[in-house]
């Protein structure tokens, strides 16, 4: 977990090297981790050092600058791609009771799933919309900065061993059918019905460096902001505000909030606990 090259006597050195590394990655590849939470990034970098047997961050930096494939693997290590279907079932339940009735009044609407990772929650939303008869009336944009995870999301193939947990979540979320109606088992995997992703566009978008790309009725961005420092969080909430139509819905992770972001007064709270907000109609 920690590399032997670093201890209390050179903690300052590590801070300098980390700062140089983040600048180098930004200048060379355009990925901006400079305002990610420091403790988190340090942990990932030290982990990568011990796995790749590179003695210190300066030597890691050298390799990253010169070896694009190596950087690509390093990038995977920096992003957290732990997710599950119907994660926080109470959130989906709240969506069903508080938001779906409103979506039913629209002839057509757009949803942006920002930081969708490997797509488990995209398929969860698609299932919810399908069960409510809304899937054909919507367009879902599912974005992430990591192209590798987007490929997995597009395929919709997941490990069979995870399905038991997903099924439990689905039932708790108030699903009206059976989760097994939506996938086929194949060897150790399950593959989700292509019909579910027929309304989804998977695209490369970086919340840190890219801008508004569409006006949407609902945004889901769950457990992404926790990895950002406060200023960056505020900037991204601003990006969401600009991307939502008046009256549009913003859904964050249960430990994230628009409180103290500077945008607090521009949203109404729909569900405080599940972190569902509505852009005010001014």
């Amino acid at each position: 977990m920690t590399n032997g090259a670093y201890n209390e006597t050179n903690a300052d050195l590590l801070n300098i090297e980390m700062q140089l590394l983040m600048e180098a990655i930004f200048l060379r590849y355009g990925y901006d981790f400079r305002n990610y939470s420091k403790a988190h990034i340090r942990r990932r970098v030290l982990h990568h050092l011990s796995m790749s047997l590179i003695p210190n961050v300066t030597m890691l930096l050298d390799r990253i600058l010169r070896d694009r494939d190596f950087f690509s693997n390093f990038l995977d290590d920096l992003s957290i791609n732990v997710t599950e279907m119907f994660r926080d079932p109470e959130f989906y339940k709240s969506l069903k009771y508080n938001i779906i009735p409103k979506l039913k009044t629209y002839a057509y609407f757009k949803v942006w799933h920002a930081g969708c990772s490997t797509g488990e929650e995209v398929y969860s939303i698609a299932i919810l919309l399908k069960e409510e008869g809304l899937l054909d009336r919507c367009q879902i944009y599912a974005t992430d900065f990591n192209r590798k995870v987007l490929e997995t999301a597009k395929e919709g193939v997941y490990q069979k061993s995870d399905i038991e947990q997903y099924d439990k979540n689905y039932v708790l979320s108030g699903g009206s059918g059976k989760l097994s109606d939506y996938y086929k088992s194949r060897y150790g995997s399950v593959i989700f019905d292509k019909n579910l992703s027929s309304k989804v566009v998977f695209a490369d978008h970086n919340l840190v460096t890219d801008n508004v790309f569409a006006e949407v009725n609902m945004i889901l961005c769950r457990n992404v902001l926790i990895y950002f420092e406060k200023n960056l969080q505020d900037r991204v909430i601003g990006l969401f505000y600009k991307s939502l139509v008046p009256g549009g819905i913003l859904c964050l992770g249960t430990k994230e909030s628009i409180k103290f972001s500077g945008y607090e007064n521009l949203f109404e709270v729909v569900d405080e606990k599940q972190k569902i907000y509505k852009r005010k109609i001014l």
Binding site: N15, S37, K38, A39, H40, R43, T83, I226, Y227
Partner: peptide, 28 residues
């Protein structure tokens, strides 16, 4: 996790020692 500026941050990364939250991650 505790940040260098003495604020908290949270993470949903993999369980560590079969645990989330992990004591090791906080202590480190």
């Amino acid at each position: 996790l505790i940040e260098p500026d003495f604020t908290f941050s949270l993470s949903t990364e993999e369980k560590y020692n079969y645990s989330r939250p992990s004591i090791d991650i906080l202590f480190e």
